[in-house]
């Protein structure tokens, strides 16, 4: 087993590297998209509100796997050909962006009307109000749930193995089909995911406590 591990290590590490890249890259896209969608959904303009809401519902109403297939296999038919990595990043980013936008929206709404009115009554524009008053407070509310999505994304990257991206799961499948040692390899993969995601979850919980404490001391 130890020998197996050393033999497979380079391949697994390459896979893990890609998994981590996909997690961070996908999350970066998701965060930007989520902010835009959340702002769209609370906008006073119906022309922003309705499309943003429709988009979020579409994405939340369908499986991530289907979305990945759609981006990778269907979009080329209309002339948009994406590399597997781009398709994977965009698929993950869009899916998580939709879910996170709900978190962001709730965070922004939780800041409360009084804060907005105070800023407005001081003559601040909508943009200034958002930037200096609303978002800095929403941020503290939003960080812990966003952390959970981060950990969740780490695990969901396994789905992009289906569009031939050689991340951790895919590498495991390759090794398995070469050696037929399903139990050993998938157990190793299992452990790798868990060893990363459990401490990460604990870190998020710690963050949550930290933010709760620092908020109530104010």
């Amino acid at each position: 087993m130890l020998e197996d591990l050393t033999n497979w290590a380079p391949q697994l590490l390459t896979g893990l590297g890609l998994t981590v890249e996909l997690t961070f890259g996908g999350m970066a896209i998701a965060l930007v998209l989520a902010l835009l969608l959340a702002l769209g959904r609370i906008s006073s303009s119906r022309w922003l509100r309705v499309p943003a809401a429709a988009f979020v519902e579409l994405i939340r109403g369908s499986p991530l796997l289907l979305q990945l297939f759609y981006i990778y296999y269907v979009l080329p038919a209309v002339g948009l050909r994406l590399s597997p990595i781009m398709a994977g990043l965009i698929g993950l980013g869009i899916n998580y962006g939709a879910y996170l936008s709900e978190v962001f929206r709730a965070g922004i709404v939780a800041v409360g009307r009084g804060q907005r009115e105070a800023a407005e009554s001081l003559g601040m524009s909508e943009g200034q109000t958002l930037r200096f008053v609303i978002l800095p407070q929403a941020w503290r509310i939003v960080i812990p749930p966003t952390g959970n999505y981060f950990v969740s994304m780490f695990k969901d990257t396994a789905l992009v193995s289906t569009i031939s991206l050689a991340e951790l799961m895919f590498q495991g499948q390759l090794i398995a089909s070469d050696t037929f040692r399903y139990m050993t390899i998938y157990s190793i993969i299992f452990v790798i995911y868990v060893v990363i995601s459990i401490p990460a979850s604990m870190g998020v919980r710690w963050l949550e406590l930290y933010f709760n404490r620092s908020m109530s001391s104010r």
Binding site: G114, Q115, E117, A118, A119, E120, S121, L122, G123, F132, V133, Q137, R218
Partner: peptide, 15 residues
Amino acid sequence: RREVGMVFQQFNLFP
């Protein structure tokens, strides 16, 4: 709004 200042019952300071 620059001519008119407003003080609220709930203060609404930026925490």
